[in-house]
Amino acid sequence: MAEIGQVRIRIPSSIKRGDVVRVRSLVIHPMEIVQRDKAGKPVDKNYRFINRMIVTYNGREILQADTTQSISENPFFSFAFKPSEAGTLKITFLDTHGGKYEGTADIKFS
């Protein structure tokens, strides 16, 4: 699990002004699920999972998400985005153990 927190972002290779593009992102993360003891009772501990995603474009927040353990391991998210100018898309993931994982993608018009 050395690569925990690796963020990959995919955007279409050619974007024209006015296009609504589909951004796909993936972060490597275990997203721990609730464990149960022998009696079947859920174990109370600080589970490690991503509980927040923040997407910004040139510093402006365009999307946020509150996520839970009901999201798969190595979470994948996609969303629509209509860039108004060229710039940098940044996706930040925060987990319950203080981890902060970031990825960026540059958007240029062709």
Binding site: V34, I62, L63, S78, A80
Partner: peptide
């Protein structure tokens, strides 16, 4: 929201007009 999960709310997305379209995708655990 998936009804039968232990905690039914899977995720909550807060969108903005700048997205241009209200479309989101994710992978769920059911």
């Amino acid at each position: 929201i998936s009804d039968k999960n232990r905690r039914p709310m899977n995720a909550r997305f807060s969108l903005s007009p700048e997205m241009g379209a209200a479309q989101i995708g994710a992978n769920l655990r059911l």
